[in-house]
């Protein structure tokens, strides 16, 4: 499969065949190769080791490598599929695939559930949602009284936590998202539809026949 693979495999640990990645995701082979151009740029921004560490991820998101952000951290943790503290190219493509406009709706619901289930217990607990609300208030510089935060939590859990056990399970989340489809807006990136035109240079590095 040409020099794309042999070169990429040496320079990018965990690099996976773009043809296989395309077959496992919502992307075409060309789109996987275009994503590789983006991946190369992010993974070499701080340490040129062919992997994306948290600092590089934050730098790409915020243009600031020192900015700590609970939500960006959570996204990083979920993209770090192999739990090695870094994102390799396979992780990157498979995780971004969920954000493709054509990705299955159920995959988007599952991923969004994991985003909010901060400690990975299989439930979104009230304390986790409160932690996220407080982090968001800090991030945005907004001030809300604790009792206002509690009112927001009461109202949210009254609606989402159907069995009223103080936590939201996957089935409750699925129903809640169906009633509030705007919650999945963050799970779709229209940019991914145009990835080959955003990174046209991928054609110079490809030897895959499809292109």
């Amino acid at each position: 499969m040409g020099c794309f693979h042999s070169t990429a495999s040496k320079q990018f640990p965990g690099h996976e065949d773009p043809v296989i990645l395309a077959s496992q995701t919502a992307f075409s082979v060309s789109e996987v190769e275009a994503l590789f151009e983006l991946y190369k740029s992010i993974s070499s921004s701080v340490i040129d080791d062919g992997l994306i560490n948290k600092e590089e991820f934050q730098l790409a998101l915020f243009k600031n490598r020192k900015k700590e952000n609970l939500f960006a951290n959570r996204i990083f943790e979920l993209f770090d599929v192999k739990k090695k503290g870094v994102i390799d190219f396979g992780d990157f493509v498979k995780s971004l695939s969920v954000f493709h406009p054509n990705a299955p709706h159920e995959d988007k619901i599952d991923f969004s559930f994991k985003l909010y289930d901060l400690d990975g217990t299989g439930f979104i607990e009230r304390q986790e949602v409160k932690q996220m609300l407080i982090a968001l208030l800090c991030e945005s510089g907004m001030k809300l009284a604790d009792e206002t935060v509690e009112i927001i939590l009461d109202k949210t859990f009254l609606e989402a936590d159907v069995n009223q056990d103080g936590k939201i399970d996957k089935s409750e989340w699925q129903n809640f998202v169906r009633q509030n489809p705007s919650l999945l807006k963050i799970m779709t990136l229209p940019y991914l539809r145009d990835i080959t035109t955003t990174f046209p240079s991928f054609v110079f590095h490809s030897e895959v026949d499809e292109i």
Binding site: L61, R74, L115, S140, I152, L153, T156, A160, L189
Partner: peptide, 25 residues
């Protein structure tokens, strides 16, 4: 105006907005 905590979080948090990854090229 936000009585739905998740709507508040998803619409306000910059950390959940991955579009900036593509603007950084």
């Amino acid at each position: 105006p936000f009585y739905n905590a998740f709507e508040f979080i998803s619409s306000m948090s910059s950390g959940f907005d991955l579009s900036s990854l593509f603007e950084s090229k």
